[in-house]
């Protein structure tokens, strides 16, 4: 192994993909932070954001902000000029708005990505898909956070 390569515990699983339910949204969040507004503007560069094609789901009620379930689904036909290229995951209230950027190879087919994210507080999260033809599609999801990320009582 090269010197910088070390061994960490890694877990893998594999299964057939299940179907996805769609969440309902409550609106209890504070207005988005300036950081978020700026990050969104940099990303869209004045382009119109459409809804559809992308779906974002986060736990409606998160027991701890240090780990909140998150699922992104994008309809993505093969061999078309408007395939998804990049998905931006943005938080309205975190100190750093960008949570992750997902770069998707061409001809991937429908995209389903799941991860766990940190949320400082109750807020909306946005997933914005940029297509190969430049079009933008977005969806948002709200999580009520019962215990904020980054508290440690021991």
């Amino acid at each position: 192994m090269p010197p910088m390569m070390r061994r960490r515990s890694v877990l893998f699983g594999i299964a057939a993909s299940p179907a996805i339910p769609y969440p309902s949204l409550a609106q209890t969040s504070a207005p988005p932070s300036t950081l978020f507004t700026v990050a969104l503007a940099e990303l869209t560069k004045g382009r119109e954001i459409k809804s559809g094609r992308i779906r974002l789901e986060t736990s409606p009620l998160a027991e701890s902000g240090s780990s909140v379930e998150c699922k992104i689904t994008v309809e993505n036909a093969l061999a078309t000029p408007d395939q998804v290229q990049t998905i931006h995951l943005l938080s309205e209230q975190n100190p750093i708005p960008t949570i992750a950027r997902f770069h998707i190879a061409p001809d991937t087919g429908d995209v389903v990505i799941e991860t766990s994210i940190r949320l400082r507080t109750t807020q909306r999260v946005h997933a914005i898909a940029q297509m190969a033809d430049g079009a933008l599609y977005a969806d948002k999801s709200e999580s009520v956070v019962l215990l904020a990320a980054c508290l440690d009582a021991g």
């Binding site: 240090s66 009582a153 021991g154």
Partner: peptide, 18 residues
């Protein structure tokens, strides 16, 4: 989740004392 890591029983007891 609050620790964001694994912890021993003794760490949990310390959290209760805190």
């Amino acid at each position: 989740l609050e620790w964001q890591t694994l912890g021993s029983l003794h760490r949990r007891l310390r959290a209760c004392q805190l």
